[in-house]
């Protein structure tokens, strides 16, 4: 039980709006941590802070490495979080390189490792150096993830021509090709049918078994309750519950947030209905 990602007192303000206020939580190494909450609770904002798309207004986000050293993500420029922090992510609205093939998408994901072997590109342009060897390795890694996500047959098709479910899987495969320690998934099950959802569960468990921890935002409770080890519930930018799926299921505050019981906002509803 060692912490991998530690978020402490995270605050994110947009002008006068506080999207996330004083959020603290820990994602444990080797676990699947789910962040749930009603729409607008600030889940994606938390993700964007962790993965460097937003700079937090206050607070600290720390990665604990295996060698006991730490890395402060909130101080890194966006791209370095993926590069040095080894935090990968997917997007709520899929962001693939549509005009490039599935395989190319996976090769782009390994950019940093490949680029390091090109001798500032100069050597590789001249066909010198060890680039060819490193590229062959990268191709093997890409093939592994193609196989794991069932996309091998479509490897040479443009990503934009894939069906929706396959695009979701490709995005996960692409993120995994960066060789992350933490994979952040923003609603990976959105728009999937029940069978695809099951396959996704299996894939996520496989990723966890391979030693990569997961942090996921999800609305599909079937996915969340089945596979997560730890759940954090947000509402209005605040953490209202934190625990195992069994604890969350019976937590009155969570039920209130989801069903609106006793929530101030929902007092208006009967009035409006009359």
């Amino acid at each position: 039980m060692t912490a991998l990602l530690e978020v402490r007192d995270l605050v994110m303000r947009f002008g006068g709006l506080t999207a996330v206020s004083r959020l603290s939580f820990t994602a444990v190494r080797g676990e699947i941590t789910a962040v749930i909450g009603p729409n607008g609770a600030g889940k994606t904002t938390v993700f964007n802070c962790i993965t460097g798309f937003y700079r937090p207004s206050e607070g600290e986000i720390t990665i604990h490495r295996e060698d006991q050293s730490t890395l402060a993500l909130h101080r890194l420029p966006g791209f370095a979080i993926a590069k040095r922090g080894r935090v990968a992510r997917t997007f709520q609205n899929i962001r693939l390189f549509g005009g490039m093939t599935v395989l190319e998408n996976l090769m782009v994901a390994q950019h940093n490792r490949l680029q390091a072997a090109t001798g500032f590109t100069l050597l590789a342009v001249l066909g010198l150096g060890r680039y060819r060897h490193v590229e062959a390795e990268a191709l093997e890694r890409a093939k592994y993830w193609l196989d794991a996500t069932g996309l091998t047959k479509r490897a040479d098709e443009p990503a934009a021509s894939l069906p929706y479910g396959a695009q979701r899987r490709l995005e996960i495969a692409r993120a995994m090709c960066t060789d992350p320690v933490l994979l952040c998934l923003d609603e990976p099950a959105a728009g999937l049918n029940p069978r695809e959802s099951e396959e996704l569960n299996a894939l996520l468990l496989k990723i966890r078994a391979a030693g990569c921890s997961l942090l996921l935002i999800e609305h599909d409770m079937g996915v969340v309750m089945k596979i997560s080890d730890h759940i954090i519930v947000l509402d209005h930018g605040k953490k209202i519950a934190d625990g195992t799926p069994a604890e969350i299921r019976t937590n009155p505050a969570v039920i209130a947030a989801y069903l609106g019981e006793g929530d101030d906002d929902d007092l208006d509803v009967p009035v409006a209905a009359q």
């Binding site: 460097g52 798309f53 791209f79």
Partner: peptide, 14 residues
């Protein structure tokens, strides 16, 4: 080419 396709995705890949 990836940059042409999607700059944000590029950033997320480091």
């Amino acid at each position: 080419e990836a940059l042409r396709e999607d700059e944000i995705a590029c950033r997320s890949l480091g």
